[in-house]
C-alpha cells in the first residue's frame, strides 16, 4: 500500500525536490547568474507539477478518436497544458529581462557577484 502510494505520487516528490533546489539557488547563491538558473529551475518545477497533474495513464491527446469513444477517462485534460504553455512564455520573458539586467549590471560593475556589486554600489554611488 505504501509502495503504491509512492509509485502513484513519486513525480510530485521530484517536483518538490526541484522546487527546493530552485529556491536554494535563488536564496543561497551569491552569483546573480546562478540566481537566474535557480529561478528557472523553480519555474520549471511548477510547469512539471501542472503537467503531472494532467497526466492520465493510458490517456491520449484530447482529439476525438472513434475507437476510444466519448469516455473522458480515455483523454488527457488539455487545460493544464495550455496554461503551462502560457506560463512558459511568461517564464521566458522573465528570464530574458533578467539576463538583460545582468548585462547592464556587468557593464556597469564588471562583476555578477552580489557582494562585489553591492560593495561597489556603496563605494561609488
Amino acid at each position: 500500500m505504501t509502495v503504491d502510494l509512492f509509485i502513484g505520487r513519486y513525480p510530485y516528490y521530484l517536483v518538490a525536490l526541484l522546487l527546493i533546489i530552485g529556491l536554494y539557488g535563488i536564496t543561497r547563491k551569491r552569483n546573480m547568474l546562478k540566481k537566474v538558473i535557480g529561478m528557472t529551475i523553480f519555474q520549471t518545477s511548477i510547469y512539471l507539477f501542472f503537467i503531472q497533474g494532467a497526466t492520465k495513464i493510458g490517456g491520449t491527446i484530447p482529439i476525438f478518436d472513434p475507437e476510444r469513444g466519448l469516455d473522458p477517462a480515455q483523454y488527457l485534460n488539455p487545460l493544464p497544458q495550455v496554461m503551462i504553455l502560457t506560463a512558459i512564455v511568461v517564464g521566458v520573458a522573465i528570464t530574458g529581462v533578467a539576463l538583460s539586467l545582468l548585462l547592464l549590471i556587468y557593464r556597469e560593475y564588471g562583476s555578477l557577484d552580489e557582494d562585489t556589486v553591492l560593495r561597489k554600489m556603496r563605494e561609488d554611488p
Binding site: 523553480f42 511548477i46 522573465i94
Partner: peptide, 17 residues
C-alpha cells in the same frame, strides 16, 4: 537601478511562481 530591479525581479518571479 538594474541591481535593485534584478532583486525585485527575483522576488517577483518567486511570488508569481
Amino acid at each position: 537601478a538594474p541591481v535593485a530591479v534584478f532583486r525585485y525581479l527575483v522576488f517577483g518571479a518567486v511570488g508569481g511562481g
